[in-house]
Design a protein around this nucleic acid. Structure first.
Length: 182
DNA sequence: GTACAGATTGAG
DNA sequence: TCAATCTGTACT
């Protein structure tokens, strides 16, 4: 069952945690080639107060404007000139908050950059509505992830954000092989 | 117009 | 440890 708008329009930290264990479904190309992966790692970005967020201090640029969309949309952007980052917006329209999908349970998708390459996601998906799209969406599962299975640590690659870099806003499923980095 | 850092990755 | 690689942003 596809996740509805009401799932995403909730506190970002809660959405980040509850996205763990959900299925990301992607249909590719004219023949609807199917790629499905369980979400096993996420990070929350809560602009405008979060220094690590692109929308810190209400900053809005052509790049990050989709982060201001209503919960349930895709915010995708290029980092380091070569990797796409797949984010899902949360909260109400005008609130620049989102969840970065860092890890799927798929051997081809180790890391957020490779994840997008595997799913063939790029700028054309920026602003896509996950609750309506025919190409990509999230599905609920019978199996719920227990609280004790969720690990919270600091986020990756944002040391410049000083005290915000220490916030335990990265969530992943304990002992999952596809989460570990290096 | 120019300069430069960055929500990463894989090779060495 | 470090380079690849390029967009957005902040400068001049």
């Amino acid at each position: 069952m596809r996740l509805k708008k009401s799932f995403f329009i909730r506190p970002t930290l809660l959405v980040a945690k509850e996205l763990l264990g959900k299925l990301l479904v992607r249909k590719i190309g004219p023949f609807d080639k199917l790629r499905v992966g369980k979400t096993v790692g996420t990070e929350a970005y809560i602009g405008p107060k979060d220094r690590a967020s692109h929308a810190f201090n209400w900053k809005m640029t052509p790049r990050n404007k989709t982060e201001y969309l209503e919960g349930g949309h895709i915010y995708i952007y290029l980092v380091y000139g070569m990797y796409w980052q797949f984010n899902i917006t949360t909260a109400k329209r005008g609130q620049p908050e989102c969840v970065l999908i860092r890890a799927l349970e798929a051997p081809e998708a180790t890391g957020p950059g490779k994840l997008c390459r595997w799913l063939k996601l790029d700028k054309s998906f920026d602003g896509e509505d996950l609750t309506k799209s025919k190409k990509i969406w999230l599905e609920d599962r019978e199996v719920k992830i227990k609280k004790s299975q969720i690990v919270a640590t600091k986020r990756v690659g944002i040391d410049y954000a000083k005290e915000w870099a220490k916030k335990p806003w990265r969530f992943y499923i304990k002992d999952n092989l596809y989460v570990s980095r290096k």
